[in-house]
């Protein structure tokens, strides 16, 4: 039964041999992937122009086209709520961008950021730039003093779009407003083509059902203490059925981590098996 799940990333060698006379076919038709860098076959990973920014996680780099976070494109991360390890996932790429002497901009962080924690991940905290675009300050000559007024989604995305379009920002990390329409995202994706660096947009998990123009969509889910399960919903390449499990930099002291792991083993083993079974059955039927 598990054989059916295997041909996900790489086709088995027997598949090519079973297709009649492969040698003759190959000599007549050129491989599409040699014609143009934007072409790739269904079972291959796409080859974007230029290399991506390494995620810092070997397992994830292997699954992403270009070997890392794409440049000049949006990377969409869907997470159920904040605080499941998303910053630890992105920190290695952001640190690399900062070490290259470029600017990292954060748009509308949903809670207070702790500078010491960011510094602990290796980020240069004082170099980060935070943009709060959720409220505008209007200049009112009659009543002195800034008055804040909330703004709609188009005005909120204006700042992000400007930053992407300028092409001078090293990396962009943006928390998008909920229930964003697909054409707004498409606009951002078009703007991101001028942005030579990773552009992360973080959205709520319910956005998975909505269409999206971003070429990379990942679903994040906590999978235990200091672990993250990354579902690749969309990439330039074959679909990935099973989530990639990442071991994040530990936040717990080592003693506590061992205790937690021992406790988790007892509790989580049985549910883990039951989770995998339905997906295998589904593929087998298909």
């Amino acid at each position: 039964m598990p054989v059916a799940i295997v041909p996900v990333a790489e086709p088995p060698p027997s598949a090519a041999a079973a297709g009649g006379n492969p040698g003759r076919l190959r000599s007549e038709r050129p491989n599409p992937e040699t014609l143009h860098p934007a072409l790739w076959r269904g079972h291959q990973l796409g080859r974007p122009v230029g290399h991506g920014v390494s995620t810092g996680f070997h397992e994830l780099d292997e699954q992403l086209p270009g070997g890392g976070w794409p440049r000049r494109a949006l990377s969409e991360l869907l997470l159920p709520h904040l605080g499941i390890g998303e910053i630890r996932l992105l920190a290695p790429a952001l640190v690399a961008v900062q070490q290259a002497g470029r600017l990292v901009m954060l748009f509308d962080p949903p809670a207070v950021l702790c500078g010491w924690a960011l510094a602990g991940m290796g980020l240069a905290v004082e170099q980060l730039l935070l943009i709060q675009s959720a409220s505008h300050v209007s200049v009112d000559p009659v009543r002195p003093g800034p008055s804040r007024r909330p703004v709609g989604a188009p005005a909120r995305l204006w700042a992000l779009e400007q930053a992407l379009k300028s092409g001078h920002v090293g990396a962009v990390l943006a928390w998008l407003p909920p229930c964003l329409s697909p054409d707004r995202l498409r606009r951002l994706q078009l703007a991101a083509q001028a942005h030579d660096g990773p552009a992360f947009v973080l959205r709520e998990a319910a956005a998975q059902a909505a269409p999206s123009a971003s070429p990379l969509r990942l679903g994040l889910r906590a999978a235990g203490v200091d672990q993250l399960a990354v579902n690749v919903f969309k990439r330039r390449g074959p679909p990935l059925l099973q989530p990639v499990h990442l071991r994040l930099p530990p936040m717990l002291p080592s003693m506590a981590a061992r205790r937690a792991a021992a406790a988790a083993k007892v509790e989580v083993m049985a549910p883990a098996v039951s989770v995998r079974l339905p997906s295998a059955t589904f593929v087998n039927l298909a």
Partner: peptide
């Protein structure tokens, strides 16, 4: 060049400040 990128960044930040308000463009200080 790095200098032209810096000039572009300064302009971008000026634009953001002009539209959003000067105190909406922030940095963290520990």
């Amino acid at each position: 060049t790095p200098r032209s990128e810096h000039a572009g960044l300064v302009r971008l930040i000026e634009r953001l400040q002009a539209r959003l308000g000067a105190d909406q463009v922030q940095r963290l200080v520990r």
